[in-house]
Design a protein around this nucleic acid. Structure first.
Lengths: 142, 142
DNA sequence: TTACATGTAATTATTATAGTTACATGTAAG
DNA sequence: CTTACATGTAACTATAATAATTACATGTAA
């Protein structure tokens, strides 16, 4: 089980839009880099647009970032592409037996722990921006 | 998409084994508290046993913890029940286009970021023991 | 009108999960 | 030895999510 590759594709898209800012970033172009079908890219781009991360117009080729690179965090992307529901990274079994001490308390006891773990993960993502990703790529290209 | 409830059930099992240490924790008994089929419990218990967290014997009823409460972390449970593969919490799209700067570098650039995020989550789990869960339950029962 | 762009739905195949059923093997008591 | 009950495991079913593909609607510009 893993977090959908939609997230990594979303990051790829945003990164490429920036690095191709002097060109036209059509869904076809982006799909070529990601190596997937343009319809997939358009689906994800729709989510990024809805989240206010990019600007695209029907019929007109070329997406643009809607925010500054350094203002787009990986957490923004993660939430934009809906890979994990709020506070639902961990599933907790339902309907434990209320006649049992553990049964009636387990959900409420572990839920805050799971919340804390999910928050720790999301905090790491919140501290990385598309600008950082681009720096990372530039370093690897040297 | 979420981390399987096998993990929360695993925690439930270990917690109940401890709180029922003067009784017999058969898979039937544990299943009653979790409110699931005993075969499910036995499957998970097999994993916990394999990971050295509990002791069970064929034909003989009653599981026991194989380690001290305070030495069993939620990370131990998480790894025991194989809900997430090592360093694979996040999927990364495969085969990006190597003819593109972003395409050839994106995987290696975001992989360490994802690793860091997963590690942050796992560190939280590593700092919580079954003893803590029991304390949490006892507080809720007051 | 045509060519090309975005946007979305439907379909298919695969995988993982959750739950159930069936049955094999092991233990202990009578 | 038989019976009752325990652990252990496989197979099956249903569901949901993912990934990929195809088809088509709508929009823009020449």
């Amino acid at each position: 089980m893993s977090i959908s590759s939609r997230f990594s594709v979303g990051i790829h898209i945003l990164t490429l839009i920036e690095l191709n800012k002097d060109g036209v970033s059509s869904s076809e172009f982006l799909a070529g880099s990601v190596n997937t079908n343009p319809a997939v890219i358009r689906k994800i781009m729709g989510m990024l647009k809805k989240a206010g991360l990019i600007k695209v117009q029907p019929g007109i080729a070329g997406a643009e970032l809607a925010k500054d690179l350094s203002d787009i965090t990986l957490l923004d992307v993660y939430k934009a592409v809906h890979v994990v529901r709020d506070n639902e990274l961990f599933s907790i079994h339902e309907n434990p037996n209320p006649n049992c001490t553990v049964g009636r308390n387990i959900q409420n006891t572990i839920e805050p722990i799971f919340f804390k773990a999910q928050t720790a993960l999301e905090k790491v993502l919140e501290n990385v921006t598309i600008e950082d990703v681009i720096k990372g790529i530039n370093e690897k290209e040297k």
